Amino acid sequence: MLNLKSKWKATVLFIAYFSFISFLSFVGISIFFKERLHGNYIEASHNFIPFSTIGMYFLNFGSYNFYTWFYNTLGNILLFIPFGMFLALFFPKVTRVWAIIIILLFSFLIEAMQLISHLGVFDVDDIILKTVGGFLGFLIFNLLNRTKINE
């Protein structure tokens, strides 16, 4: 269980992480797509078909530079591992099913806000990858926490 000082530090870290996620989701990548900064990214094709983008990146691996491939696949997973860890830290009683639901909803919220604001591209595969990453973080935190308790 966290003491008050540790909980305060974890909260500050979460706020910094959340700020980073928000910046990256709505502004950061826009550095490469200037029209996104002005909400003019309407021409982009959104993806509502599960595994379409993931399949495209893995089946045509050689057609993309490494940065594009990594950012759009593993980057989404890695980006959300801390979210799952924070979820397990702040809500130790949450079950695996509820963790998946919460992570899925948060991922959907980001993608929906990108769609509505035109500061990004809605991609259902990003929701899948972020959910996988968040759930991995949740599992890793609980595994590490269980190992620490058993020592």
Rank of each mutant, 00 (worst) to 15 (best):
N3R: 14
N3G: 10
K5H: 08
K7P: 01
A10P: 06
A10K: 11
A10F: 12
L13P: 01
F18D: 04
I21T: 15
I21C: 13
S25L: 10
F26A: 08
F26L: 03
I29W: 15
S30N: 15
S30G: 15
F32G: 05
F33E: 13
F33R: 13
E35A: 03
E35H: 15
L37D: 09
L37S: 06
L37Y: 13
H38I: 00
I42P: 00
E43H: 13
E43I: 05
S45D: 00
S45W: 05
S45P: 00
F48V: 07
F48D: 00
F48N: 03
P50C: 06
T53N: 07
I54Q: 10
Y64K: 03
F66W: 09
Y71K: 10
Y71C: 11
T73Q: 09
L74H: 12
N76I: 03
L78A: 11
I81C: 04
P82N: 12
L87W: 05
A88S: 09
L89N: 05
F91S: 14
V94N: 08
R96H: 13
W98L: 04
I102A: 07
L104E: 08
S107H: 08
S107G: 10
I110D: 00
A112V: 14
M113L: 14
Q114V: 15
L115R: 14
I116T: 03
H118C: 06
H118K: 13
L119S: 11
I127Y: 10
I127M: 05
I128R: 10
K130Q: 03
T131M: 01
V132P: 10
G133N: 05
F135P: 01
L136D: 02
G137D: 06
G137Y: 08
F138H: 04
F141T: 01
N142F: 12
L143V: 12
T147S: 09
T147I: 04
I149C: 00
